[in-house]
Each structure stands twice: as structure tokens, then as C-alpha cells.
Computed example of a mutant assay.
Amino acid sequence: MSLDSSRPPADLPTDKELVLKVIPMPADTNGNGDIFGGWVMAQVDLAGSVLPARLAQGRMATVAVNEFIFKHPVRVGDILSLYAGITRVGRTSITVEVEVFAERFAQQGEYAKVTEARLTYVAIDADGRPRPLPAR
């Protein structure tokens, strides 16, 4: 799937925080020459954990990937900007939305949303059991 160059580039989110920027390399490609989806998922999980880590103030774990949508392929050399925002805080868990935007190497300054996801993290104790989040 290729990006439609007649469409304007995606607007970057104003309701989320930029938590990670990364550039995929040739070693991260799949058999089609695009960046392997599992690599993108790992980056999203890392980015998604940034904001919950502030609230959990201790160990936490990813407990669910509630939704994951690949909108466009990621290419070698793309500059990926990962934005995250907390959508729900429970007693032990935190749900986060992550949006991934690619700044294509040849089109600096233009962004296209390539992936969006919703993940849930849970605060855990030393034994790996859920624990209440600290009072805010």
C-alpha cells in the first residue's frame, strides 16, 4: 500500500505527548522490504509505557493490546514520531492510545499516520501480581 500523494499530510496530534522518536534500519525489514510489523509493535509498546510509568511509580507490565491498526507501511529511513495519551486510569491499570507518524526520508516536514494502537498496562508488585496505583 502506498501513500496517496494527492492527500495532505496528517496533522500531528495536539492531545498527546511526543514520547519517542526512532528511525528503522535495514535489519528491521520483512520479506517485502518494509519494516516488520513486530518491530513497530515493540516500539509502540515502549512508547505506550512512558506515561503509565509516571503514574505507576514502580514495576508495571503490558496486559493487553486492545487494538492495533497498521494504516501504511513503514520504510527504512522513515523518522517515526510516537505520540501517547492516557485514556483511562483504573485501580491497578492504565490504558493508553499511541499514534505513530512517519516523516518520510525524502519528504522532510511531512507526516503520515502509519499506525495507531490502544494498550493497557498494569502496576505490579515484586511477585508480578497487580497492585493499586499510587494515590494521585
Results as ranks from 00 to 15, higher is better:
122 V>W: 03
106 A>F: 01
88 R>I: 02
106 A>N: 07
104 R>Y: 10
88 R>S: 12
103 E>I: 12
96 V>D: 05
97 E>L: 04
87 T>F: 07
117 A>N: 05
92 T>S: 15
124 I>G: 09
86 I>Q: 04
92 T>Y: 10
115 T>K: 05
115 T>H: 13
123 A>F: 08
121 Y>M: 00
117 A>G: 11
111 Y>P: 14
115 T>V: 11
115 T>A: 14
103 E>K: 06
124 I>W: 02
105 F>I: 15
94 I>D: 08
109 G>M: 02
111 Y>C: 11
93 S>E: 02
106 A>T: 01
89 V>S: 00
96 V>Q: 13
92 T>P: 03
98 V>G: 12
97 E>K: 07
88 R>A: 12
101 F>H: 15
112 A>C: 08
123 A>G: 01
89 V>F: 02
110 E>N: 10
119 L>Q: 13
116 E>N: 14
115 T>Y: 11
90 G>P: 00
94 I>N: 02
85 G>H: 05
111 Y>N: 11
87 T>K: 14
88 R>D: 14
125 D>H: 05
92 T>C: 11
89 V>I: 11
105 F>N: 13
105 F>K: 15
121 Y>G: 06
91 R>T: 15
85 G>A: 13
92 T>M: 08
95 T>C: 08
126 A>T: 11
121 Y>L: 00
93 S>H: 09
100 V>R: 07
97 E>Y: 01
93 S>F: 10
108 Q>R: 15
102 A>E: 03
104 R>G: 05
114 V>H: 07
98 V>H: 08
102 A>D: 02
109 G>Y: 03
115 T>N: 15
118 R>D: 01
118 R>Y: 00
112 A>D: 13
99 E>T: 10
103 E>M: 12
91 R>V: 09
125 D>G: 09
107 Q>R: 04
122 V>R: 09
115 T>M: 10
120 T>F: 04
118 R>W: 01
87 T>A: 06
113 K>T: 01
107 Q>Y: 09
115 T>E: 13
